[in-house]
Computed example of a mutant assay.
Amino acid sequence: MPISGDIEKKKITTAHGRYYLLRISAQRRKKIFIIQNVRRIKGIRTTPIKIEKAHITKKEALAILIGTQIGAGVLGLPYAASKVGLILAIGVLLGVTLLMMGTALIVLQFSAKMKGAQMSTMSQVILGRTGGILMYISISLMSFGALLAYISGMGSVISSLLKINETLGALLFWVLASIIVYKGIEASGKTELILSYIMLALFILVTIMLLPYVKLENGLYFESSGILSILGVSIFALGSHTIIPDIYKSLGSYKETKRVVILGFVIPATIYATFMSTFLLTFGKDTPQIATQGLEELYGKIGWIVGNLIPLLAITTSYIGISLAQQSNTIEFLKLKKPLAWSLTVIPPALVYFAGVKNFADVLAFAGDTGDLMAFIVLPILMWIVSKIKKIR
């Protein structure tokens, strides 16, 4: 595809004609650059992806990762734990933490090799078109379940705060939050850092408030019938893999990002275990679906305020963050315009909620047992296995 000499060969003398041919030549050079820079990275065929470093600090990156995890999942863990007992719940949470941390590091490894590729893209590169589609569907299913749970949870919270019908509260939340999503407002690293400090302070406060009421016998029982519930909610609560490529691109260092990812699982898991245990040992099998709302029984008005402030912050930020991520994912992968991508993101879960599916904890378990399980555990492990086979060959 010859480029040099194009203008001379055409013998164009007018300024407009020379300008047109210069543009054609530039486009050809761009095509050649893309074709020539297709490369193989340890057996994985990929195209170059530009890294745009956002210059956030490691503390801000850690806050973003922790903020992505600590949302509605932590509020549903005590209720899920009440179905199995304390010992089995802690065992499942520990096992899921180690597994999810391992697959998160796999995602980081592949994203770094592909210069910051997103999960659907890396899945398509390694597993083919089918793998990319399967990853997109899994993440979409996870997002759908999460948003449905958030609408359900906030319906209960707003109903308690404003003394209105739960369905009306859910509608009010959905309208306001979805408008924010459409406008594309995203929290910066500094904002996430501040919110993380506030959330951490609130969790410590709640733990201190519950300690006088803790009774060991409330959690010392064993029931296996709720194993899928605690498993699903634990997977959901620790699912933050989709944000890892963005953190890597922002920090620009694999080693720094790896440290952030490890801490980003250890810290939330510790908070989850403490939060879950104190609520279960306080309320036992009567633990409410949104755990913090049980504080009102113990502390009246103060407990009511704290018990609704935590889910208000956690669920609202999680709804906006996951909706924005899924909206962008749909725009990029399906090549859709923003209004349609927004509609596909926020409308289906609202329709299902208003049709009558309103069980907060069970929806979290469903999302964890389906979309999160496939996107954050099965497919990353499959990508790792396939890449090893390609490397050996």
Rank of each mutant, 00 (worst) to 15 (best):
Q289Y: 00
V157W: 01
A350S: 01
R23C: 11
A63H: 00
N165H: 11
R18W: 08
F173C: 04
A187G: 05
K183W: 13
L344P: 04
I198P: 02
L238T: 00
F376D: 08
A325T: 14
L344E: 06
V157D: 03
A269F: 02
I290F: 01
G356S: 08
I90P: 01
L65Y: 07
A350M: 04
R39N: 14
L340F: 11
K249C: 11
K115C: 04
S188M: 09
I44W: 00
L373Y: 07
A269E: 06
H55Y: 10
L238M: 02
S225D: 14
M383F: 06
A149G: 00
I126V: 15
K59R: 09
I12W: 11
G284I: 08
E332C: 05
I180L: 09
E256R: 13
G91C: 11
V357H: 07
E166H: 07
D372T: 15
L168P: 03
G219S: 10
P349H: 05
Y221I: 05
T103S: 09
L340H: 10
I267R: 02
Y197M: 12
F173A: 01
L172N: 02
L21F: 12
F110C: 07
G67P: 05
L373G: 01
Y136E: 10
I158V: 15
L65Q: 09
M119P: 01
A237F: 03
S277I: 04
G73P: 03
T46D: 07
Y248C: 06
I271E: 01
K190C: 03
A149M: 03
G5V: 05
G239R: 04
L334K: 08
S120F: 09
A367N: 07
R45D: 14
S387P: 07
E296K: 13
L205F: 13
T121M: 11
K335D: 13
I133R: 09
K42P: 06
S143I: 04
S196C: 11
L216D: 08
V175E: 09
S111D: 03
F279T: 02
T103N: 07
I151M: 02
M1V: 11
A61P: 01
G307W: 01
L313D: 00
T97M: 12
G284A: 11
S277K: 00
L195V: 10
R29E: 11
E297R: 15
M101V: 07
I139W: 04
A170M: 08
L228I: 10
I310M: 06
T47R: 14
V363P: 04
M122I: 13
P348G: 04
I41L: 10
T13A: 13
H16Q: 14
I227V: 12
G76Y: 05
I290D: 00
G284Q: 07
D369E: 15
L228G: 08
P268G: 02
V306R: 00
K249M: 13
A177C: 10
G128D: 02
K258P: 08
I310D: 00
I126F: 05
K183D: 08
I230R: 04
K42R: 14
I310R: 03
M119L: 15
K30E: 13
K190I: 08
